[in-house]
Amino acid sequence: MRLSRIAFLFCSIVGLTGLLIQPAMAAEHAKKMTPAALVSYKITDGPAIKAINKSLTGKAGDMVAGEKTMVNKKKGNCLACHVVTKLKARAAKKPKKYADMGLIGPPLDGAAGRYTEGELRMMLVNAKAAFPDTIMPGFYRADKLTRVMGKFKGKTVINAQDVENILAFLVTLK
């Protein structure tokens, strides 16, 4: 009885890591990121929501790198809120990154069928442009924010190439 309770306490503590993006670890990442000015982009109307049709970097995205950024808890941490069914099998080998996918947002399965590439780019850059009340963070914006923690001030969660890389992965979700 006692032992099982102790085991339970321990598991709960271990199980808690990586809830959202973790500030302590995230700080390291933020320091390494260059505070260069943000790439400018143009917002247009897509068929369903607002869109950014041109690549932010002019370079093609790398979907393998994109998946890494998506599951990185210090970066995209997309699985905190979204299910991606085709990634579920990876939980067997890498439970920390792939297990316990969140159910806050809709599953990303089929997202590329619902939205154009430009609309998906908009979602990543600043989801609020499409859904004003959304809980989903804007991953490539640093303006009009309130009381940002010192080490993240003026910085975006991910960089422009990260956006393109994640996008390369998202467009495979047909």
Binding site: I135, P137, R147, V148
Partner: peptide, 15 residues
């Protein structure tokens, strides 16, 4: 809304 992730208490605990 606050912070780099731009969320309010209400997002997590009301919505």
């Amino acid at each position: 809304r606050r912070g780099q992730l731009d969320m309010a208490c209400s997002h997590c605990h009301e919505k």
